[in-house]
Design a protein around this nucleic acid. Structure first.
Length: 660
DNA sequence: CAGTGAGCGAGCTTCCGCTTGACTT
């Protein structure tokens, strides 16, 4: 009786699958990619070391052939696979069914050079039935998909290893640029620029505490003499003043206090009670990006920590695979979730029909896996797992989110009450939960700490038009408009995922990369780009605008999809991208001669003239212009955030330096 | 240690995406 060697990517998967396959099937894992381009000069094979393209390890002078080497640490894996293959009658490649997985299978055939028949097997569910079915329906390696992956790999190398050296020459060593990281840094820098341009606006309004039948409630001033009172939305972010043409009245402190005094003796009457019914649907089951966001919001875990815990839960059989971009639940998962809804919350809380979820159309989802959910066809309740601490909390989060996805919609009513007092109109808002539905199990978190919890009632006393209400207190309240919030790791991951930038396996490491390069600093949860990030982003915007365009990845993905479908050729695409008259190589070598180092190291910041901020050999410094016409250079500490750079602050630094 | 920010030469840095477990702090 012969033996079949089956290769998957993950050892955990290998163990599970082996149980579902007949005797004689040996399942081993590749541990991800096994070959790649050389990382540094020391890894380049001797035969290529003197080529002009050696460092990039892609022959752009000819047909963009990549030089592949066995990745560091994968020699043992390969030796083991070779050994197993020796006495096997066939090789079955069962890596993930996506671009990267197809490529791993192809690389394996290139390295193992099997003399036995090779079959490609794919499955999306790890159940005995799905595995059996997959075994019966094997195919060949999809060469077009492999070329699409190779094109992606080569393009990323061309970008990274062509632009980074230019940054070393013009700004400083150890810097880097890449399709993903440069887009992430651009997002952070753009947000910081918005904050720098932002001007605070201030306004006043009134808050009344009213009561009906001794039940108190709050109402806010809405209009005076029929004209709406200005709120934050009416302000121009650039000037801090009311937007031009805003049909709202701005109250200052004196006016607000005067109005409050005049209303103390007024009669307060309900004009209208408006009720608006609303339906809320549960969030889709977790994918990698949403798991990272929610674990950050609710458990205060970093993306990296979340993935460590999830990996552990996966390897111990508690959850399905944690790196996925598909929210799809298998039929068995839907049944298991609905079972828990019935037993924990009752039949009334089931959604009338099973809910299935599709990936967002805008993303580049490749759907090799299903959603992140409790494993198996009968989810273990959190209390049955024997888990504790962060592991229990994360499992519970996944369990609740999955179960909630099969629960009924929540029904609620938004209530708006208009109240008149002399020439002023006040408004009170309330919320009533008519049927909690999935709120019972799980409500998605918010990045805005001020946002009201979605599942919270906000009660109002019974009110009807014509009712009079009692004034208990009335006060003038000052408000200030706030600049757009800085990104957090969670909101950055969401932004990248929305743009299709990065993959489930890389979200957690993107932040690590840009922190290592000195492009960003985390203060509590806020991500603050450094002056270095400003300098690099400026240079890229000016000379390589397409690389920091947030649609760059999307455009690339469209081409890759066409390559995978056999509708487009990879070679002309790469040639055009790199070698053509407007190609990256051409532009980069032109710019190398043209870009002035002094100018590249100078950072454009609003409202700083005549002072200047530059990146020097030893970090950032400012050229401060003194009143006597002289200038003095002062160091800028690394932990300085761009919004602290004001002319006053720079003068202070200069004085400190003079006296200290 | 404080303070640097020029220019020459050497050699080095760098991308993204797939996986764990072996390292160190």
């Amino acid at each position: 009786m012969g033996k079949s060697l089956v290769i998957v990517e993950s050892p955990t998967k290998a163990r599970t699958i082996e149980k579902y396959l007949p005797k004689g099937y040996v399942v081993r894992s590749s541990m991800g990619h096994v070959r790649d381009l050389p990382k540094s000069k020391s890894e380049i094979p001797k035969a290529y070391q003197d080529k002009p393209w050696a460092e990039i390890s892609v022959n752009y002078e000819n047909e963009f052939e990549p030089i592949y080497i066995i990745s560091r640490g994968k020699k043992k894996v390969i030796d083991e696979l070779k050994k197993e293959l020796k006495d096997a009658d066939e090789l079955i490649l069962a890596t993930d069914e996506d671009r990267e997985g197809e490529s791993i299978s192809w690389h394996l055939t290139e390295i193992l050079k099997p003399k036995v028949p090779v079959r490609r097997m794919v499955f999306h569910e790890i159940t005995p039935e799905a595995i059996q079915a997959a075994l019966a329906e094997t195919r060949e390696i999809d060469e077009n998909l492999v070329r699409a992956q190779e094109t992606r790999r080569v393009l990323d190398r061309l970008v990274g290893y062509t632009v980074s050296p230019l940054l070393w020459k013009k700004i400083g060593g150890q810097l880097s640029a890449g399709r993903v990281q440069s887009a992430a840094v651009k997002l952070l820098v753009d947000r910081e620029r918005e904050r720098l341009r932002f001007r605070t606006g201030s306004f006043w309004d009134l808050r009344a505490t009213l009561a009906r039948q001794d039940i108190p409630f709050d109402a806010r001033l809405h209009a005076v003499d029929g004209t709406r009172i200005a709120t934050g939305k009416d302000f121009d972010e650039q000037t801090g003043r009311l937007k031009e043409g805003a049909k709202a009245r701005l109250l200052d402190e004196a006016q607000a206090r005067e109005l409050a005094r005049s209303l103390e003796t007024a009669a307060w009457t309900v004009l209208e009670v408006k009720e608006k019914p609303e339906t809320r649907r549960p969030a889709p089951p977790f994918i990698t990006s949403t798991l990272q966001q929610e674990a950050n919001r609710k458990l205060n875990l970093s993306a990296r920590r979340t993935m460590q815990i999830a990996q552990d839960l996966y390897q111990r059989g508690f959850i399905t695979y944690m790196r996925t971009d598909s929210p799809v639940l298998s039929d068995q998962a839907i049944r298991a979730a609905r079972h828990w809804v019935e037993s924990e919350y009752g039949k009334d809380f089931l959604s009338p029909k099973p809910r299935q979820f599709k990936p967002k159309a805008a993303t580049n989802a490749q759907e090799a896996h299903e959603a992140i959910r409790p494993a198996g066809d009968r989810f273990k309740a959190p209390r049955e797992t024997g888990l504790s601490g962060e592991e229990l909390k994360l499992y519970e989060l996944i369990w609740k989110r999955t179960v909630a996805s099969q629960m009924a919609d929540a029904k609620q009513t938004q209530i708006t009450v208009r109240i008149e007092a002399a020439n002023a109109e006040f408004r009170a808002t309330g919320k009533r939960i008519d049927f909690p539905g999935f709120f019972r199990a799980y409500v998605e978190g918010s990045d805005d700490p001020d946002a009201a919890l979605e599942d919270q009632e906000k009660p109002l006393p019974p009110l009807a038009a014509g009712d009079t209400v009692d004034l208990q207190s009335l006060e003038a309240v000052a408000h200030e408009t706030k600049p757009p919030a800085r990104y957090t790791e969670a909101s950055l991951v969401r932004a990248l995922e929305e743009k299709g930038i990065g993959r489930p396996s890389t979200y957690a490491s993107i932040l690590g990369t840009i922190i290592d390069r000195g492009y960003v600093r985390a203060e509590r949860k806020a991500l603050i780009p450094t002056l270095k990030a400003f300098a690099v982003t400026q240079l890229l915007e000016q000379h390589f605008p397409e690389l920091v365009d947030l649609d760059f990845t999307r455009d690339m993905e469209n081409v890759l999809d066409r390559i995978a479908a056999g509708e487009a050729d990879w070679l002309p695409y790469l040639r055009d991208f790199y070698n053509g008259p407007t190609g990256l190589r051409t532009i980069a070598s032109q710019r190398e001669a043209e870009i002035d180092v002094q100018q590249a190291r100078q950072i454009e910041l609003p409202d700083l003239a005549p002072h200047e901020v530059r990146i020097g050999r030893f970090g950032a410094y400012a050229v401060v212009h003194l009143d006597d016409g002289n200038t003095v250079n002062v160091n800028l500490p690394d932990e300085l955030s761009p919004d602290q750079l004001t002319p006053e602050f720079l003068r202070e630094l200069a004085e400190q330096k003079a006296s200290g």
